[in-house]
Design a protein around this nucleic acid. Structure first.
Length: 752
DNA sequence: GACCTGCTGCGGCGTG
């Protein structure tokens, strides 16, 4: 018997109106779990019907409750994106109406009057962002009991997107604060998540400290199979790529003339011709997603493919999509993908990996290995959603042509090898676990300020119990909490102060910080210029680079020249140009997980053949394996190179960077380049001696290593931390000092 | 050699 019969009558009526013949697997499983009460994580891939899996039984619960005197919201539905809230609102509107349950949208783009109405007569379901929830607690803390005291359940949509992040810590903290303000022991939490390698992490993220009591519901995914290919390209580079942003031409007539000239023969194209030709041939005429890896590359690839359409007098079907493009530019692409019959390829960053509704695409392509196996899996799920259609993923591995005399690292074709390693990890069913265990002191500072605003003043002990004992900051003990409070109450900081009665109050600087609307978000955002053409805002660009009139840039997939820069208003006015340079957005490299780099070593050292490689990729892999043998890297992971040394420990980026800093603390000039460490002006024997000593000793003193981290301040409130606490955060969240002996042993252990 | 996300309250003005 289907669990359909356990749903309330109006809910069943709505299902009947939808003409559903039966419930999806994940819905059948979720209904009894949600009806039973308690915490539940529902996991399934995108578009499997998770929303209905949660809302149908939740509405049944709400309709089954006896009418109560005190009003209040019944269901709090927290979502990471405004766009998702809008999608979900239209999906739930008719259902809620059938059930006579009010449905509210609550985020920054919703009118203040609609929010006021919801606040004055709170009831039914409210779809809200963490930031809007934070704002409500901070500005109307005394109303929290009235608004949330009668909640039946809290839903966290896209739970996986919150795990381990600053925003995730904030959300967990807010959920605790709501339970406490509502005077409730606990309120049921329902998490909706993508499938993770380890679902216990999702359970623990939903209920910190109580993950083992969360019910896990996993939707079956029969799937339509996967067609995956790695395409190799061996490109002779006569000249290096132009350096980003630095070579902007000056504003004069000669430059205007240059706009219309064609690129000279010696100038290397930004996208190698064989790669561009294949992309054009394989993608044109269908609907695809092309993940280019960075915003700069999104612009360059979209511009190159658009220009190819124009050269062949064909209508353009390639459009860029990334976080710095305006909402209007992005929505045009999304709508065209979803509703327009014309073939469309969106060239994108990670913006199109998550939940936004764009329907199904024919294929997915990506340039290079991509940032993680987890993201490769999400991308794969974007195609092959229609019955009988497999998921199609093409990975373009672009490598330099290089002879036996070339640089050892380049001969290993590590981009291709990493692509293979990541596909192998994916086939094994593994993906990176979210990184948890950080101290998150920046976010804790935020939560201390927020709780003071919410309550009007709080005792330090009460704050610690709320945020660290009951809330999510479990790694912060009383002593550390007191040290943090002393730091942010210091006379030169003054975020907080203590009243004569011992209550924590907002200090002078804290008044400034909490007064602005920028306060509600816990993540930092760079200052940006707005890029404007005529009356249309194309998007924004970070202001760390120098921007000057006369410079050209590719932006929103088209070519522009900067006409005017208004530094006060932070507006850059542009006009069309015939030729332009790629824009520079900057960014940091998050690095690869240990398991990926270990698999890369196994790929190089092994003899396995991979059926998903094309002929060039096979040839490049053979060349890389030949280099591996020539260089005897299996037995000699320390190579002499020019006047320096190259180290191949085959560990993930965090351990690699820690070892490089440890060598710097021993007065070597060491730097990380991809998956290797380069030591300048050093003799292999001298480096090996120090490594042997590190391998035989306990982990080194972290302080000299921490002191060499280039930019320690990263999170929004890091700047308010006393140095000792900033160093602690750096050591715990960015380094792995304990691994130094083991990584050093990998380099010297195999030489004896 | 990376990416993404969010926002209150109030004063002033125009419109129905």
């Amino acid at each position: 018997m289907s669990n359909l019969d356990r749903l309330a009558e109006p809910v069943r009526r709505w299902i009947w109106q939808q003409q559903w013949t039966k419930l999806r697997d994940v819905q059948e499983k979720a209904i009894p779990a949600v009806l039973a009460g308690g915490d539940v994580v529902v996991s399934a891939k995108t578009a499997a019907g998770k929303t209905e899996a949660a809302i149908l039984p939740l509405l049944t619960r709400v309709l089954g409750r006896e009418e109560r005197e005190a009003a209040g919201f019944a269901i709090l539905w927290v979502s990471p994106l405004k766009a998702l809230i809008n999608d979900q609102f239209s999906r739930m509107e008719a259902l809620c109406e059938t059930c006579s349950v009010p449905l509210h949208r609550w985020h920054g783009d919703v009118s203040a009057s609609a929010k006021k109405r919801a606040r004055e007569r709170p009831s039914g379901v409210v779809l809200i962002t963490p930031e809007s929830l934070e704002a409500t607690l901070v500005r109307r803390g005394r109303e929290a009991g009235r608004l949330f005291g009668d909640l039946d359940a809290i839903v966290v949509d896209e739970l996986h997107a919150f795990i381990g992040s600053e925003r995730g810590m904030q959300l967990q903290s807010i959920l605790t604060r709501i339970e406490v303000a509502a005077g409730r022991e606990r309120i049921d939490r329902i998490g909706l998540s993508a499938t993770l390698g380890d679902m216990w992490l999702a359970a623990e993220a939903l209920r910190p400290g109580g993950g083992d009591r969360v019910t896990l519901v996993d939707g079956l995914d029969p799937g339509n199979g996967v067609r995956l290919q790695i395409r190799g390209y061996e490109i002779a580079r006569s000249r290096p790529l132009p350096e980003d942003g630095k070579a902007g031409p000056t504003n004069d007539e000669a430059e205007e003339a240059k706009d219309s000239s064609t690129p000279t023969e010696t100038e290397a194209p930004l996208v190698p011709k064989p790669v561009a030709d294949d992309l054009f041939r394989l993608l044109r005429g269908r609907s695809n997603l092309l993940f280019a890896g960075s915003r700069d590359r999104v612009e360059v690839y979209a511009d190159t493919l658009r220009a190819m359409c124009e050269d062949q007098r064909l209508p353009n079907e390639f459009f860029p999509h990334h976080g710095n493009l305006s909402k209007a530019e992005r929505e045009d692409v999304e709508t065209r993908l979803r509703d327009d019959p014309r073939p469309t390829t969106a060239v994108a960053t990670t913006t199109l990996e998550l939940g936004i509704d764009i329907g199904d695409v024919d294929g997915v392509a990506q340039i290079g290995p991509g940032s993680s196996v987890a993201s490769m899996r999400q991308r794969l799920g974007r195609s092959g959603r229609r019955a009988g259609k497999p998921s199609v993923l093409r990975i373009f591995a672009v490598e330099d042509a290089i002879g036996p005399g070339g640089s050892p690292v380049d001969r290993l074709h590590l981009d291709l090898v990493q692509s293979i390693a990541m596909v192998e990890c994916l086939k094994d069913g593994w993906c990176e676990p979210p990184s948890i265990g950080g101290l998150h002191l920046s976010t804790l500072i935020h939560q201390i300020l927020a709780v003071i605003c919410q309550t009007g003043g709080i005792r330090p002990t009460t704050a610690w119990r709320l945020l660290c004992e009951r809330g999510p900051f479990r790694t912060v003990d009383r002593a550390l909490f007191v040290e943090l409070l002393r730091g942010i109450a210091a006379p030169d900081v003054r975020l907080v102060e203590q009243s004569p009665e011992g209550l924590l109050m907002i200090g002078e600087e804290g008044e400034h910080v909490t007064a602005t609307h920028d306060f509600y978000a816990v993540f930092a955002t760079p200052e940006e210029y707005r890029i404007v053409h005529g009356s249309r805002t194309l998007g924004t660009k970070p202001m760390d680079q120098t921007i000057a009139p006369g410079q050209t840039m590719i932006f929103a997939g088209r070519r522009w020249r900067i006409v005017e820069v208004d530094d006060r208003a932070r507006v850059v006015t542009v006009k069309p140009a015939k030729k332009a340079l790629p824009p520079a957005f900057g960014g940091d490299w998050a690095g690869a997980h240990d398991r990926i780099v270990e698999t890369m070593r196994a790929v190089l050292a092994g003899e396995e053949t991979y059926a998903y490689l094309d002929a060039t990729a096979e040839k490049l892999l053979a060349d890389a394996r030949e280099a591996w043998r020539d260089l005897a890297l299996a037995t000699t992971p320390i190579l002499s190179s020019g006047r320096g040394v190259v180290l191949f420990p085959w560990v993930g980026t965090r351990k690699l960077e820690t070892l490089a800093l440890a060598l710097m603390a021993r007065d070597f000039v060491a730097s990380v380049d991809g998956h290797v460490i380069e030591v300048d002006d050093a003799h292999p024997k001298a480096v090996a001696e120090v490594l042997a000593e590190m391998a035989a000793s306990p982990p080194p003193d972290p302080q000299p290593i921490v002191d060499r981290v280039a930019k320690p301040v990263r999170a929004k409130f890091d700047g308010f931390l006393p140095k000792g606490l900033m160093d602690l955060v750096t050591a715990i969240e960015r380094l792995d000092v304990a691994s130094v002996p083991e990584v050093a042993a990998r380099l010297v252990g195999s030489r004896d």
